[in-house]
Write a protein that binds this DNA or RNA. Structure first.
Length: 416
RNA sequence: GUGGCCAUAGUUCAGUCGGUUAGAACGCCAGGUUGUGGCCCUGGAGGUCGUGGGUUCAAAUCCCACUGGUCACCCCA
């Protein structure tokens, strides 16, 4: 075997695409019902777009981006997430001038150069949505509710929703100072990863998964206790709306997401079915990002979710998507009938009837086996005799029943 | 990036203490009375035992390196 797909990339094979298509279709349906419209942006952008929006100090920008120079020497990066591109497109195309609120969704491949493991690939797929232009808590909850609706719709129930408020440009810096002071006291005992973050991003220390770090920081002040009035009111509203919508959640005052642009609401959906990489989806509000990228001050909120992780759960549950199978397989009993079989198959197809016939000049028995393998609903065997009489036996493959059919009326028969 | 485990037909796997033609199941192909699939029966094709080196009279088996896969750490979808 000479060539292999790049490490961390996968072929999605014909045996798997029906599941992908079914799930994508369900997702698009939910987006449509929530009135989000699809946006398709390029899979690569200028590097600084991601660096600026996601944050120079994040893991994504610091060590995970697929960045390279193109032939003109420009630094370009394969998108590691979807929000930055969507916001860039929003600004570039002046979408904010045409509408007060843009509700968009995307679905497609993302790229991060990490060591692959269960639920983690270098090219993976996300779907997500952004509501650009609304400051209200109602919008936050619409985004969260929509995310959950997708899982509900697919029969996924074993997940949990965690929410937090990470404050805004007024209250967060104050809190960070307080937290930083507390962390300094125990700095020497923290993991090296956490030590690095004490000054740069102290809130990430609280979100560390290191057990010892967790113990050491157990009693530390939480952002939720230091929110200013606006953030506190917003957070309270989000919580009460979630309750009103019947969406269970837990508040996790330590939750910080891996992207720096979040303000106020942050949320994460995890599943115990997933193993170590257990995040199914995450999102939050980002009121400063549009301005940061050169647009007007535009409060916004969005989410992103992993396709592969969603599919892992469905596969684990043994979920079977509807199979695509031919309605009829037309078999040629002898060479004299092959041309008729071929043209008739084509005719049926052009009338919207999924049909198949043999292309390998195989024996009748082989053709029947093929019809069975393809799970055709019916088989029709036609040879010289049938062509002469204008009639043939149509067999219902699942119950073995047969009936006579007039060849000229075959299309009509399948239309019912 | 660091670490554990793994690598034998298309697939999932067996392969004894190192020993002579490397097996099974499923899948694939062809048959099982003249023109009908699924079950069953018979036969067949298909392997550079991941790659390269080493030890040995002899390596799928032991050792080393590399490559790939997988899981975990970190972090995240």
């Amino acid at each position: 075997m000479n060539y292999r797909s790049i490490k961390g990339t996968k072929d999605i094979l014909p045996s798997e695409t029906p599941l992908w298509q079914f799930v994508e279709q369900t997702i698009r349906e939910v987006f449509r019902q929530f009135n989000y419209k699809e946006i398709r942006t390029p899979v690569f952008e200028t590097t600084s777009l991601f660096a600026r929006s996601i944050g120079e100090l994040t893991d994504i920008v610091g060590k995970e981006m697929y960045t390279f120079q193109d032939r003109s020497g420009d630094s370009i990066t394969l998108r590691p997430e979807g929000t930055a591109s969507a916001i860039r497109a929003y600004i570039q195309n002046n979408l904010g001038e045409a509408l007060p609120l843009s509700k968009v969704y995307y679905i497609g491949p993302m790229f991060r150069q990490e060591r692959p493991q269960a639920g983690r690939l270098r090219q993976f797929h996300q779907f997500g949505a952004e509501a650009i232009g609304s400051p209200t808590a109602e919008t936050d909850v619409e985004i969260i509710a929509m995310t959950i609706e997708i899982y509900k719709r697919l029969g996924i129930t074993n997940y949990s929703l965690q929410i937090n408020s990470v404050g805004d440009e007024e209250c967060r810096p104050k809190y960070k100072e307080i937290l930083n002071a507390e962390l300094q006291k125990i700095a020497g005992q923290l993991s090296t990863e956490s030590q690095k973050r004490i000054d740069q991003n102290p809130m990430r220390v609280l979100d560390s998964k290191n057990e010892n770090d967790q113990k050491l920081t157990a009693g530390m002040p939480l952002i939720t206790d230091y929110l200013n009035e606006e953030c506190a009111t917003h957070f309270a509203k989000v919580k009460s709306l979630l309750t009103a919508y019947g969406i269970p959640y837990t508040v996790n005052g330590r939750l910080v997401r891996g992207l720096d642009y979040y303000t106020k609401t942050a949320f994460e959906i995890t599943s115990t079915e997933l193993g170590s990489q257990d995040a199914l989806a995450g999102g939050g509000r980002y009121d400063l990002l549009v301005k940061e990228l050169g647009g007007k001050q535009t409060p916004s909120v969005g989410f992103a979710a992993g396709m592969e992780r969603l599919l892992m759960i469905l596969e684990k549950k043994g979920f079977q998507p509807p199979q695509q199978r031919p309605t009829v397989f037309i078999a040629a009993a002898d060479d004299a009938a092959r041309e008729w079989v071929l043209t008739t198959t084509m005719k049926l197809r052009s009338q919207g009837i999924a049909s198949e016939c043999d292309l390998l000049a195989r024996s009748l028995k082989s053709q029947m086996k093929e019809a069975d393998r393809q799970q055709a609903e019916f088989s029709l065997v036609v040879g010289a005799t049938e062509l002469e009489s204008g009639k043939a036996l149509l067999k219902h493959l699942s119950d073995h029943s047969q009936q006579n059919i007039v060849l000229e009326a075959i299309a009509e028969f399948f239309k019912h």
